[in-house]
Every structure is written in structure tokens, then in C-alpha cells.
Amino acid sequence: MELTLVGIGTGNPDHLTLQAIEAIRAADILLIPEKGEDRQELADLRRRIAASCVEGEAPRLLSFPMPERDPAVPDYKTRVNLWHDAIAQAWLDALAPYPEARKVALLVWGDPALFDSTLRIAGRIGKVRPLDLKVVPGLMSLQVLTASHAIPLNSLAEPFLVTTGRHLREHGWPRGVDTLVVMLDGECSFTTLDPAGISIWWGAYVGMEGEILDHGPLSDAGPRIVRTRAEARARRGWIMDIYLLRRGASPASAP
């Protein structure tokens, strides 16, 4: 079986590359994870993106229930590894009735290489059946965030670091960098920082319909973002957001 992981950007069909469109058209089956009624929009977006690519015979859209992490497992990495095992088995179970399928594709938000575990899950599949794994790169949310705010990702001749909300909460601001991109943060971890001298550029649903942006000194924008984020999640039932923090920069203009 050939399994292609297709980076699709942040849910906007305009983000698809020609390579991504060709991979979707070539697939016999597109796997569509279902994450419950409150996140039905995510599955529907995948279907719309697939439909926008189709010319002639469409690939089979094969839905499967997405397993959830077990909150009873205390260790974070153990909990995630067990979750990935369950997802891999869900893929296998969904594909079992279609042994004739030779080309399977799965649409991945952003790019499969950055803070996404689809590649690790696919590795589990490769241990139980022959697998030709291919990856089509996609536009990353951090690129869409900086484009939406019209700012560069890094300061002149300076590095930046991509991290998670959990790391920011547990370890604070990393040494040696003045620019952080924070992903996978469901708890507004920027509120744990001393806001003095820090600016934030935040975005939710970046590049998608209903995109929300805010920026400013962390002391001013932080509380506003917390409120906006909570309201947006309650209204839409789910949220995907990302933000950039920079020390010593003016939020009114690109550094």
C-alpha cells in the first residue's frame, strides 16, 4: 500500500500546492478522521478540500472515529504513545474491508513535519504491513500567522524557537532566543510570563473563514486574547490558534 500524507495548510483550499492536488486526485481512498459533533467542521473541511480537487472519478472518502487520549494515564508521553497506537489501529480497521486499495491518502493540517504525529502513526502501520510512505509538504500555520500580521518570523540575523504551551508553562522562556512561536496551547500559557517588554501576535483559525487576529504589548493584548479565545471556542465548538512572542520589539511595526 502507498500511503501519502498530504499537507493542506490551515483549511483554506487556496493553500493547496499542485503536488497536493495531484496526490488527492491519484488516491483510491482518502481517510477522514471524525472527531465528534463539536468538531464536525474539521471533517467537513477535509471533504470540501477533496471535492475542490476532483476531476473525473473521485477517491472514496472513508471516515473513521478518531480515538481520544486516555486522561487516566498520568505520564504525558505514555498517554500520547498509547493514543497513537489506538489511531494506527483505527486506520487499519477502516482500511481492512478494502484490501484492493493501493493508494491511500490522509490530509494533514499544516505540514506533517511540524508538531504533528501523523508520520509517527504511519510508522506503526509500516510495522504490520508493507507500506510505501510518501509526504507532500504543506503551508505551516506559523507561516500563515506571520503573513496575516505582515511581520517577519525572526528579527534581523537572530534565531527563533518553535515550542509548545506545555513547555512554556513548565520551563519558562528558553535562553538564547528573543522570538518564540507557541503552538498546541490550550491554556493561554503566555499568562504565566512577566509581560514586561514582550509583544504578542496571535491568530485563531489563521487562513480560514472566520480568522481572528490580535497583537500588541503582552500586558495589554494578553487579557484581551484570553477573552476572545474563550468566546470563539464556545461559539464554534473548537479552536486552533498559534502565537508569536517577541522580546524588545514594537508591536506596531515589523521589527
Rank of each mutant, 00 (worst) to 15 (best):
A150C: 06
Y205W: 14
I200E: 07
C53Y: 09
T228Y: 00
K103R: 15
A230L: 10
D194I: 02
W238I: 02
W91T: 01
K35M: 15
L244E: 03
P99Q: 06
A232N: 05
G56Q: 08
L16H: 08
D111Y: 08
V104M: 06
T191Q: 14
V182H: 09
D178W: 00
S189G: 08
P251R: 04
T118D: 07
L16Y: 10
T146A: 14
K77E: 15
V226E: 14
E2Q: 15
Q40P: 00
T228P: 00
R247P: 05
P159D: 13
V182R: 04
A27Q: 06
L61V: 03
A101W: 07
G9A: 07
L213P: 07
S117W: 05
I242H: 03
R229C: 13
A122G: 08
R124E: 11
R236W: 08
F115K: 02
E187W: 01
W83P: 00
L31F: 10
G123V: 03
A27R: 01
G210Q: 06
L245I: 05
D44C: 02
G165C: 09
E55F: 02
T228N: 12
Q89W: 01
D220K: 10
I225T: 08
L156R: 10
A101R: 03
H167I: 04
A96P: 02
G203R: 04
V144T: 14
A147I: 03
A254L: 00
H15I: 06
E231L: 13
S189V: 04
L131M: 13
G176V: 05
